[in-house]
Amino acid sequence: MASNQRIAPAPPATTDAGRAVEANIRQSRGEISLLYQVLLNSLPVAQGWETYLTAIRQKTSLKPSLRELVILRVAVLNRAPYEFEAHVSHAQKAGLSDAKIAAVKVSDLAAFDDLERLVLEYTDTMTRDVQVPDALFARIKEAFDPAGRVDLTATVAAYNMVSRFLEALHVH
């Protein structure tokens, strides 16, 4: 356990309920990452987190490259380097170019197309300002159908949850 870590990883489950949650996580994630080892200190939170984040990462209508762009940007804004690094390979798999991955870190807007810029502006506004002006949301409505608006908004919100959890508890 790193010296600055605030929550010890949970030991392997000793109850049927706990083993079931661990099995779910292994099934959807392949392994139990440090984040989930920390989450497993609270079974209901670990189970709910796994279900919600699996939906966000694998089941929404949002184009994978836009999803990963949102995730990387939230990590940059919230100074969450673990989240950023953990998602570089996902971003590459989702088709986000290395140039764009580098550009999101240093805010080089010229690297992005109009839809990506809109998504970045929405991500920035939700993360930094919380309140989203009508004029910006009107542009989101033009670009996304109702399901897409919910998926995009939930993705920004979910990864703000992730980065805040990681940073508050020093999961690095």
Binding site: V76, V106, S107, R128
Partner: peptide
């Protein structure tokens, strides 16, 4: 390429109560 550049600069607005 400091990874915290954007995040660090972003702290100025709320701290100084200036609109972003």
């Amino acid at each position: 390429n400091a990874p915290s550049l954007i995040g660090d600069l972003g702290r100025l607005a709320p701290e100084l109560s200036i609109p972003a």
